[in-house]
Amino acid sequence: MVDSILKANRAYFDLDLLRALVMVADCGSFTAAAARLHSTQSTISQKLRRLEELAGHRLLDRGVRDVRPTDIGETVLGYARRMLSLNEQLGEVLSGSGAATVIRLGVPEDFAAGRTTRVLAEFSRLHTRVKLEVSSGLSRALAEGYERGELDLILVKQRRGSREAVACWPEPMCWVDSASSPAYALEPVPLVAFPPRGMYREDMIDAIEGLGRRWRISFTSSSLGGIQSAVCDGLGISLLPARAVSSGHVVLGADSGLPTIDGIELALLHRPSADPEAKALAALLIEMLAQDGAPG
């Protein structure tokens, strides 16, 4: 009799429901979680409602812009992660193979080679069961992908203090012209820029207009290499990170009248709930960036 009562009152938590909770908490939204789980938003919502019924508590605070776990939700999340991890470990033992942890890293194009790849290679040698998926692109696109839950760890350029980050570093900027075919004296001033909504574009336009000069966009590219080459070949001036200045450029100093742009920073972001391996990779990237503040 007692045994039957205990069985009737005992909640059995389906791993599928716990996985939905973890994904929503990590992504911060039902839409992103549904995409990650190859499901629909309504299905994820139903799973969360069922889990809350089983738990007898509200597990998530559903805000206007994001979804956050409640205090009891944080407790359930801790158990959910351990249960899912144990389930994966059991599967690995029974199958005789180890499933790799996947870390999806996003970096700007100018950080997709050089010292960054050497750090990633070092990390892979130390963490043989981790699979790295590295994407490069414009910082705005990387940040949007991170917010949608498509990336786990990102290094982006942003307005100083615009996002809370694990670590930040100032990004010194330089106005550059061609060393062989300077264009700054031309009217209107030709500008080599990233596409609309790209970093630095608005700064360039505001600065030129602030000098009372006319301007035109002479060349647009989403590639840093394309921007660098266009300036070298005399297509116009541009605003670039100091570490992106090449021998084919000349830096326009204070005598040009152009203002100093000092409101840009590099920011490294990951979620507090990130896997230990993702945090270990972040620590290596922080060490790399701290050495001189502007690696490439």
Rank of each mutant, 00 (worst) to 15 (best):
V2N: 15
D3H: 05
S4T: 10
I5A: 08
K7T: 03
K7M: 00
R10C: 03
Y12Q: 12
F13N: 00
L15W: 10
R19E: 09
A20E: 00
V22K: 06
G28P: 13
F30T: 02
S39H: 01
T40I: 07
I44W: 09
S45P: 05
E53K: 13
L54H: 08
A55P: 09
A55D: 04
R58L: 09
L59G: 06
D61I: 12
D61S: 11
V64P: 08
R65E: 13
R65N: 14
V67I: 15
D71S: 02
E74S: 08
E74G: 05
G78P: 10
A80T: 14
M83D: 14
Q89F: 12
G91Y: 13
E92H: 10
G98E: 14
G98H: 13
R104M: 09
L105Y: 03
V107L: 15
V107A: 05
E109M: 03
R115H: 05
T116E: 11
R118V: 12
R118G: 10
L120V: 13
L120Y: 11
E122T: 12
F123L: 12
F123P: 07
L126F: 00
R129E: 06
V130N: 09
K131A: 13
K131R: 09
S136F: 09
G137T: 06
A141F: 14
A141I: 14
L142W: 04
E144M: 13
Y146T: 03
Y146R: 06
R148L: 07
L151Q: 08
L153N: 10
L153V: 13
L153M: 06
L155D: 00
K157E: 07
Q158M: 07
E164C: 05
V166N: 00
V166I: 11
P170M: 02
P172D: 13
M173P: 07
W175K: 01
S178H: 05
A179N: 03
S181P: 00
A185C: 04
E187H: 14
P188D: 05
P188I: 14
L191F: 01
L191C: 00
V192D: 09
V192T: 01
A193K: 10
P195A: 01
G198P: 07
G198C: 02
M199C: 01
Y200L: 09
I208F: 06
E209T: 12
R213T: 02
W215R: 12
S221Q: 08
L224D: 15
G225V: 13
I227E: 02
V231L: 09
L235C: 12
I237K: 06
I237D: 11
P241T: 04
P241N: 10
A244T: 12
A244W: 00
S246A: 00
G253E: 08
A254K: 10
S256W: 05
G257S: 01
G257Y: 08
P259S: 11
T260A: 07
D262F: 07
G263Q: 04
I264H: 04
L266I: 12
L269E: 04
L269G: 09
R271S: 11
R271W: 06
P272M: 07
D275S: 12
K279D: 07
A280I: 04
A282M: 06
L284E: 13
L284D: 10
I286F: 00
M288W: 15
D292I: 03
A294D: 15
G296C: 08
